[in-house]
């Protein structure tokens, strides 16, 4: 199989701790694939194995048809990597950072120069080329890391939590740039714990928890299958949850979950919990909204993505 990523029974152990517990993964060429899960789910460990910076403990992993165990250098030459921390060179300018990175790939000088221009233009950093790294905002640094990852004209981009720590505006800019790249046919693999990011960017995704895959499919498929169309949220003190949950369950064909200070009501078999909105007695804050991937995660694991 060429192109994309193929993993079978992939395992990563750190001593006795199992970070990735035998997962199967197929990423097709040209798609944007997501790994969604809370911190500690095993997303970063999985990504690091794919990027060949972490040796696999067991299982099979092919990237672009090449085995990570034996063809790491070739794989790395084809991947673009956007890591979780911005490991930029603070002593170098924006442009110098890109040049240094281009050299690691052994690219000729003129190609490096051309790609620097393309990257700066694409990520809207052309007027910052001579800036030092500490002069950049968080969003700009992130965009620079993305520009850097494109220096080797990769066939696949791997992004580990691309917008964590960014303010909403910076996040939108990054998403927009990533959608542009996606539109150009670049295969993308990203990890995230933000459901909007997964829903916004990914064609397909897997949901991970504690090193295992708990669900896979497109965002729409997952939501329809596990959370329905609408969700009713009732904000109530944890002490009030038990009677409230029992009451809600009695009122119809509903699934009720409680997490933190909120009770969630999902419909079964196409029934919508929206009608309950007017029926709830008590001084609670009630909201009806569309179901999303966070609800899917909650339904499948009993935990919130945000933990």
């Amino acid at each position: 199989m060429t192109g994309g990523i193929h993993a079978r029974g992939l395992v990563k152990r750190f001593g006795s701790y199992v970070a990735v517990d035998g997962i199967d993964l197929e990423v097709r060429s040209g798609e944007c694939f997501g790994l969604l899960g809370p911190n500690g789910a095993g997303k970063t460990s999985t990504i690091r194995m794919i990027c060949c910076v972490s040796p696999i403990t067991a299982g099979e992993l092919l990237v672009d048809g090449l085995d990570v165990r034996t063809r790491a250098r070739e794989i790395k030459a084809r991947l673009g990597v956007v890591p979780q921390d911005d490991n930029l060179d603070p002593d170098l300018t924006v442009e110098q950072n890109l040049r240094a990175y281009g050299r690691y790939f052994g690219l000729p000088r003129d190609i490096i120069a051309a790609r620097i221009e393309e990257g700066l233009a694409l990520l809207q950093l052309s007027d910052r080329r001579a800036s030092r790294i500490d002069e950049l905002s968080g969003g700009m640094k992130r965009r620079l890391v993305i520009a850097r990852s494109l220096m080797n004209a990769p066939s696949m981009l791997v992004l580990d939590e691309p917008t964590t720590g960014l303010d909403p505006q910076a996040r939108q800019v990054v998403w927009q740039r990533l959608r542009l790249l996606k539109g150009r046919g670049l295969t993308m693999l990203l990890t995230t714990h933000y459901m909007e990011e997964a829903a916004n960017l990914c064609d397909r995704l897997i949901i991970m928890n504690r090193g295992r895959i708990v669900a896979q499919g497109s965002p729409a498929e997952l939501v329809a299958a596990h959370a329905g169309r609408d969700v009713l949220e009732v904000q109530a003190d944890p002490e009030a949850h038990q009677p409230l949950v029992a009451d809600l369950q009695r009122r119809g064909n509903f699934e009720v979950e409680s997490s933190g200070d909120t009770v969630y009501v999902f419909g079964r078999d196409g029934e919508s919990p929206a009608r309950l909105a007017g029926e709830i007695v008590g001084n609670f804050r009630v909201t009806v909204r569309q179901a999303n991937l966070e609800d899917v995660f909650l339904r499948l694991t009993g935990r919130s993505l945000k933990e």
């Binding site: 990027c51 910076v53 790491a72 250098r73 070739e74 790395k76 030459a77 991947l79 990597v81 890591p83 921390d85 490991n87 930029l88 060179d89 603070p90 990175y101 690691y104 790939f105 052994g106 080797n152």
Partner: peptide, 14 residues
Amino acid sequence: NQRTYHAIIATPLG
């Protein structure tokens, strides 16, 4: 501190 080595090993350099 800078994690420069980590950045480098994501490229074909080991």
